[in-house]
């Protein structure tokens, strides 16, 4: 149970970073931490103690335990989606830096009301 709680704590650490940091790059890192904690969570859901990789081997004995392969497939997809989001965020961050000459979120405040 402890590992699930730690995973949730990692999620909250990321959320705290996104909500409190002023630097754009640190906000992006916070989002990445949140995403990694979820990937970790998915892998832990699929894990069975003593389980092996889910490749069926007919020659071995029948009572082999396999880990759940579906969360692994999901994590692969989630990593790719996370890559796209992070790449776009960083591209926008570079453009913002070129326009405003700062990474401070408090100084980037044209839009109000």
């Amino acid at each position: 149970m402890l590992n699930y709680i730690l995973c949730f704590v990692l999620f909250l650490v990321g959320l705290y970073g996104v909500l409190t940091r002023k630097n754009i790059i640190k906000i992006i890192i916070g989002l990445c931490i949140m995403e990694y904690s979820l990937n970790l969570f998915f892998i832990m859901i699929g894990y069975i103690k003593g389980g092996v990789a889910p490749i069926v081997d007919l020659s071995s004995s029948q009572n082999v335990k396999y880990v759940d392969p579906l969360p692994q497939a999901i994590v692969l997809t989630a990593i790719v989606i996370g890559l796209a989001t992070t790449a776009l965020l960083l591209a926008i961050a570079i453009k913002l830096y070129k326009k405003y000459k700062t990474f401070d979120i408090d100084k980037i405040n044209n839009l109000k009301g």
């Binding site: 999620f11 959320l15 996104v18 754009i24 906000i27 989002l31 949140m34 995403e35 979820l38 969570f41 989630a78 989001t85 776009l88 965020l89 926008i92 961050a93 453009k95 913002l96 326009k99 405003y100 980037i108 405040n109 044209n110 839009l111």
Partner: peptide, 24 residues
């Protein structure tokens, strides 16, 4: 332009949090 980039960044950060909450 300045405004569009700022709006997009805000949208991405909040949208990213939303996506991760849904994924959780």
């Amino acid at each position: 332009s300045k405004d569009e980039l700022e709006a997009s960044f805000k949208y991405q950060v909040l949208g990213g949090i939303a996506s991760l909450l849904i994924l959780f």
